[in-house]
Nucleic acid binder design. Structure first.
Lengths: 97, 97
DNA sequence: CTTATTTGGTTTATTTTATAAACTACTTTA
DNA sequence: TAAAGTAGTTTATAAAATAAACCAAATAAG
């Protein structure tokens, strides 16, 4: 009847992060923060979880002298996102189409 | 960019309850429990929240001598569900269709 | 120069949620 | 009449989300 919703993706902020990253080659911390309107603390925590799950890559580097964290989605992340959407459909019925 | 996801609906079990109720005139506790595979305790709590939010009606009656709790969705509930879906679409992009 | 202030974060603490476990009240069955 | 089942509720615990506090380095202002 109802498919299980991957709890890692069933979170407003993490879903937004993945949604952003899926349509772009990479995005940095500040950009994601702006787009999602998340606080830095919250974003930091959620990025960490997504990385530990293997859904995103996180690279810490520098933009000139300023630190810069760049994120990109992984193959695993893409798959998880697509599965999540497919599971969601079991809840949304024909309302979706 | 990303619309806010009503936190009351952005919960696996509550979403399942609403999803069930939206396509049916009413459903009782036991039926919802079976369909959602929730534990009775969890279901009781979540039904309570949906009722307090005005998203569902809850009627306590009897089926012969056994207690029976019947739920149905309200107009408010329908609206909230539809808004939730519309907000979701801002996260799912074209992946949805 | 040296002292704010800003930037780009992380860590820790608090609040909120979800979930499970324990319990209640009554009914049916053995 | 004692045990087991039904239909839930209440309470306790675990997990999650979020905010607040913090840190290190860079830049701006006096």
């Amino acid at each position: 009847m109802f498919k299980e919703l991957n709890p890692l993706l069933h979170s407003e902020l993490r879903l937004a992060i993945i949604s952003l990253l899926i349509s772009v080659e990479s995005a940095d911390f500040v950009y994601i923060k702006e787009q999602t309107k998340a606080t830095a603390g919250n974003l930091s925590v959620q990025i960490d979880k997504l990385q530990k799950a293997g859904y995103i890559n996180v690279q810490k580097g520098f933009n000139g002298k300023m630190p810069r964290t760049t994120c990109s989605i992984t193959e695993n992340g893409i798959n998880a996102f697509e599965e999540y959407i497919s599971a969601l459909k079991s809840y949304l019925g024909d309302k979706l189409r």
